[in-house]
């Protein structure tokens, strides 16, 4: 039973894939709306990307080239595990290069390199409901979405400003999709929110444990919630990557000793490696960027 040859292409049986594809079509037709689907038990735990895995399994074809990232990196343990799963069960080609991939499954990041038409970005989503921590009941939040009753969210953001002087949400920062649904962008840092707006690639979101799928078709308007006098602000780093020198990208803080020493490096490992392999003219040479 451990032999992948016993299982269907990409693990799921064709009936299940059809059911998921129907949910995906509905999700694409109503951008930002959470479509319930009959999520299956997968051979990895709920909360570890089962929603993303089911969506990926349903959209993969034999010619697809898959990239899997977690925290922006291709070599984090869970990304390795999921990539291996599809290598075994679908026998498809995989890559770490954003530009070469036709399907990218991600957890918590959007690649730094711009995505292009024809690519599919699959997000792993833990809690799909943006209103969940304001209202724990599904019956209530579904009603609020139906009536476009988003007062609760605006009050929450307003209270943040009243208390802290700014909106104190740094990831899973809520967005409004196509002027209609408020959507959870999955726990990506708000730094990545602007990349969702008018993205040429198809963006699919799968929440396995919560049994929901939602989607952003290519070139969909995605606006991070804010107020006129307190506009959305993207997280800024006052430095560049210490390995490749890139600026204006998302950085990981890596602790280097127990005396407060640390360094900042690209969260997107493919982006960083690409720059180090072929530094652009615009990029500062690596040596100068290092301390």
């Amino acid at each position: 039973m451990s032999d992948a040859a016993h299982y269907n292409f990409a693990y799921l049986d064709e009936q299940t894939k059809r059911m998921i594809r129907r949910a995906l079509l509905k999700a694409v037709a109503i951008p930002g709306y959470q479509v319930p689907f009959a999520s299956r038990e997968m051979p990895m735990p709920y909360g570890w990307g089962t929603g993303g895995v089911q969506v990926t399994a349903s959209v993969l074809g034999p010619d697809d080239i898959l990239k899997v990232i977690d925290q922006g990196a291709d070599d984090t343990t869970n990304a390795v595990s999921i990539r291996k799963f599809f290598e075994r069960t679908a026998g498809i080609a995989t890559t770490t290069h954003t530009r070469d991939a036709t399907v990218i499954q991600t957890r918590h990041r959007i690649p730094e390199a711009p995505l292009k038409e024809g690519q599919i970005l699959v997000y792993q989503v833990p809690i799909p409901e943006p209103l969940r921590f304001l209202e724990p009941r599904e019956t209530e939040t579904r009603r609020q979405h139906a009536l476009e009753d988003y007062g609760l969210m605006h009050v929450k953001l307003y209270e943040d400003i009243a208390r802290h002087g700014h909106i104190a949400t740094t990831y899973a920062y809520p967005v409004k999709v196509d002027d209609r649904y408020i959507m959870d962008p999955s726990p990506t840092p708000k730094f990545d929110n602007p990349k969702m707006d008018m993205c040429p690639a198809l963006q699919l979101f799968g929440a396995g444990r919560e049994k929901r799928i939602y989607a952003l078709p290519p070139y969909t308007k995605v606006v991070s919630l804010d107020f006129e006098d307190h506009p959305f602000e993207r997280t800024k780093f006052d430095r560049g990557c210490e390995l490749c020198g890139a600026e204006g990208i998302y950085l990981d803080e890596v602790v280097t000793d127990d005396r407060g020493g640390c360094m900042y490096v690209c969260s997107d490992t493919d982006y960083c490696e690409g720059r180090r392999a072929a530094p652009h003219a615009a990029a500062p040479p690596i040596r100068e960027a290092r301390r």
Binding site: P45, Q71, G72, P189, R209, D252
Partner: peptide, 22 residues
Amino acid sequence: VQATGFVEHLKLPHYVDFQAEL
């Protein structure tokens, strides 16, 4: 199975979001 998955997923790396919170 759902509960253990979601509780135990806290073991997975979360350093991107933690960076934002930091």
